[in-house]
Design a protein around this nucleic acid. Structure first.
Length: 450
RNA sequence: GCCUAAAUAGCUCAGUUGGUUAGAGCACCUGACUGUUAAUCAGGGGGUCGUAGGUUCGAGUCCUACUUUGGGCGCCA
């Protein structure tokens, strides 16, 4: 059996030779004595055109093969230089493997994303979603390749955890429905993880450079195009490294992934560029070739917003977080990804390293046009006394995180890391503007179908 | 969670000031067609107009509630 991918890749070798392929009918245009099937086997974005004529004994049946049916085709690959497509298969035999009913919902036309969200099991058969989920796979591979090439260790941090969040968001409880935690499965309250960071920090203190890449769960009642209840996150942690090293790493990673998908998903990227976001490839190429992403402190960002003369709905403030409208202004002002670093301590997590001014912490957010905050990172507080003071100021339970504090007791060192939202990265890379469309089976408040 | 808009055929939509039997394109079925490219052409079937109430001689159209979906905001990645 051949694949459409190898036929495209080695079309000269296959010329005038017999091939055997199997795939799904995307379109079937029949005429009196002949007809054309667009066949896609999933091995590449492109379909291949199969020509059949009345010399085939089951010609009358083939004419009625509907969209979505699976078929096997034996035939000869012939070049068609004067036609729209470079080559086609002149069929000798076409066998129906699996019929598709009259009510197959995917038609050879545009469908709304909303409609396709109700057909999660079928939408990968459309051009758009076929492109998205191949991009997703390739981008994941690129991320692993990037870290592996730099000697990072891939750590599988737990999905079930007793860490109660440390402020990263609302948690999903895990229970076997026992009335009280002590008699429940784990003998205590446990949750689905909201981050692998604390766990992976421990491994950074053994392997130096490590990362996690796995699912994450937030029980927040967020209803936006950039939030999901289940999403994937990449969290590297690097020892003997400060905030600048952390920003450099995030920038290198983003550029590596852009370069990889432009080279290895070129058909998909061209499709996104043509039908999803005009100018996408130029936008990414510009970022790829930029010398260094813009880096400004939180204070400088606020200065810029105040000087913009724009009457923001949320007034910018030196002690306040950036609102979505502020992020949009900053990314469109610089027309590129922007790091905002040195944030007011009160709006950031307890583990972030206090700067000498005692007002800000060594944290950085990477903002990108379209997807907003795509990376959140920081240098971690490695000084035992300062970490303990911060935890007690925030009335945190030291006991449950004693193991985390231990990392400062036994050979602590400066270290940094970040979290990259995988889906937000995919949105940025594809131009797709809803997180529900870059996850195979998206989960949101009141939505866990399939 | 807050704000806002929408829901009419399998899909995408039109439907006038409240007035006869609710339309179109695509999909599906039947047929035509010697190279199609979301093929084209002719014909056919397919609708309790999201649900429940209400106003009215009369409601797809107006009112109320609910449900679902889209978008914006907040929380974050």
């Amino acid at each position: 059996m051949n694949t459409i991918e190898e036929i495209y890749r080695k079309s000269e070798e296959f010329q005038n030779r017999e091939v055997l392929i199997a795939g799904w009918v995307r379109n079937n245009r029949d005429q009196k004595e002949f007809g054309f099937i667009d066949l896609n086997d999933g091995t590449c974005f492109s379909s291949i055109q199969v020509v059949y004529d009345s010399s085939i004994e089951n010609f009358k049946d083939i004419q009625k093969y509907r969209n979505g049916s699976s078929v096997e085709v034996k035939g000869e690959l012939v070049l068609t230089p004067s036609a729209k497509q470079p080559f086609e298969i002149k069929a000798k035999e076409i066998t129906l493997l699996g019929d598709s009913g009259e009510d197959y919902p995917i038609q050879p036309k545009r469908h709304s994303r909303e409609f396709l969200r109700e057909k999660l099991h079928l939408r990968a058969r459309t051009n758009l979603f076929n492109a998205i989920f191949r991009l997703r796979s390739e981008a994941a591979y690129a991320i692993h390749t990037f870290f592996h090439s730099r000697g990072f260790i891939y750590v599988h941090t737990p999905i079930i955890t007793s860490n109660d969040g440390e402020g990263a968001g609302e948690l999903f409880n895990i229970t076997t429905a026992s009335p009280n935690p002590e008699t429940d499965f784990f003998g205590k309250k446990v949750y689905l993880t909201v981050t692998g960071q604390l766990h992976v920090e421990a491994f950074a203190m053994a392997y130096r450079n490590v990362y996690t890449f796995g699912p994450t769960f937030r029980a927040e009642n967020s209803n936006t195009t950039v939030h999901a209840s289940e999403f994937w996150m990449i969290e590297p942690e690097i020892a003997f490294a400060d905030l600048t090293d952390e920003m450099n790493l995030a920038e290198d990673l983003l550029k590596y992934v852009i370069d990889y998908v432009l080279k290895n998903c070129s058909e998909e990227m061209k499709f996104f560029d043509a039908f999803v976001e005009k100018g996408l490839i130029d936008k990414l190429t510009l970022v790829l070739n930029s010398k260094e992403f813009k880096r400004i402190t939180h204070k400088e960002a606020i200065d810029l917003l105040l000087a913009s003369g724009i009457n923001f709905e949320n007034a910018p403030g030196y002690k306040k977080d950036l609102a979505t409208e502020h992020e949009k202004y900053l990314t469109s002002y610089f027309k590129s990804p922007v790091f905002v670093y040195d944030w007011p301590k009160d709006i950031k997590a307890f583990y972030m390293r206090m700067n000498d001014d005692n007002e800000t912490v060594a944290a950085s957010d990477l903002l990108v046009p379209g997807s907003g905050e795509i990376v959140g990172g920081s240098q971690r507080e490695e000084r035992l006394d300062l970490l303990l003071k911060r935890m007690s100021d925030l009335h945190m339970n030291e006991k449950t995180l004693d193991w985390y504090v231990d990392l400062r007791r036994y050979g602590g060192c400066k270290h940094s890391g970040f979290g990259l939202g995988f889906e937000r990265l995919l949105m940025y890379l594809s131009g797709v503007d809803n997180i529900r469309d870059v996850e195979a089976y998206p989960r949101n408040p009141n939505n866990c179908d399939f």
